[in-house]
């Protein structure tokens, strides 16, 4: 009962603080502080409710228990991280995005191919490509290669569609100007069209970050060496070791946010000139 009261108090305090903060003029600090308070309040309520209602740790472990498990099994989590993220997701991401980029540049020279490939590509981007996972596991074995292959297929189409669209982002006037400078195809591509395409390319790269992680984790459900985040999640769920599952999810969340944040930072550095990056 005391714990439930504590949860209620935490909720009122957190919400009250946020209302007070959001009524004040928005500054950098409040914009950062409000979501942090919201998240912390949620965690405190979670902890108190789990303790107060005595929820079995098989159903929902308390945050403190998850933190304990997380701290206690860092070597295990690190090895899973290397297997799934570094070997599987990252290599597949680089390969897939690279291949899609090359393909987009090649397709761009032929308007016929572009008109044909763009609808097919955007159609394929909406398909449940994750279903390719069992096929890839069958072709490339249980190791990280099959996970990388799934990731390649998953990130390929969003990246392709975005890059092709980006290469069309210049208008006639700008291309005419390049022609008056006597710039050839490659010079126009390098100095005008690729820079103009960057916002679109980064959009594709950002979409790819989440897909890459999802692909690598799900592919491990279909077979993997006794290592990896997806493997650990499916095994621990079977053993009802939910605290370990949550620890893996924390790792996945941290990696996902860091991956996305890294690409976003890169975008900021590359497309500093774009309206969406200015004036904030």
């Amino acid at each position: 009962m005391i714990w439930l009261m504590a949860a209620l108090v935490a909720w009122i305090l957190g919400w009250g603080a946020n209302i007070w903060l959001s009524r004040r003029p928005a500054t950098r600090t409040t914009r950062l502080l409000v979501p942090v308070i919201f998240g912390l309040t949620l965690i405190v309520i979670w902890e108190c409710v789990v303790r107060g209602l005595d929820i079995s740790k098989v159903l929902l472990p308390a945050p403190s228990l998850i933190a304990q498990t997380f701290a206690g099994s860092t070597t295990l989590l690190w090895r899973d991280f290397v297997q799934t993220v570094v070997k599987g997701a990252l290599s597949g991401y680089l390969l897939g995005c690279g291949a899609a980029f090359m393909m987009a540049i090649a397709v761009d020279r032929f308007p016929f191919l572009k008109r044909g490939l763009l609808p097919v590509g955007s159609f394929a981007a909406a398909l449940p490509i994750i279903g390719m996972a069992p096929i890839m596991v069958m072709w490339f074995g249980f190791g990280w290669e099959s996970k990388a292959a799934v990731v390649v297929v998953m990130v390929f189409f969003p990246m392709l569609v975005n890059t092709v669209q980006g290469l069309e982002a210049t208008d006639v006037m700008q291309r005419d100007l390049m022609r008056t400078y006597a710039a050839g195809y490659w010079k126009t591509l390098l100095k005008l069209r690729l820079p103009a395409a960057m916002p679109f390319i980064f959009n594709g790269l950002k979409i790819g970050t989440t897909l890459a992680l999802i692909g690598a984790i799900i592919a491990e459900f279909f077979g993997s060496p006794t290592l990896g985040m997806g493997f650990r999640i499916s095994i621990s769920v079977g053993q009802l070791a939910m605290d370990l599952v949550w620890s893996e999810i924390i790792v996945a969340a941290l990696v996902g946010s860091a991956f996305y944040g890294g690409v976003a930072l890169l975008e900021k550095a590359v497309t500093f000139w774009h309206p969406s990056q200015r004036g904030r």
Partner: peptide, 16 residues
């Protein structure tokens, strides 16, 4: 939350 691979928790939701 869009940057988090939410599908990873699918097995846990099912079992719980």
């Amino acid at each position: 939350s869009q940057t988090i691979p939410i599908l990873a928790i699918a097995p846990m939701i099912i079992v719980v």
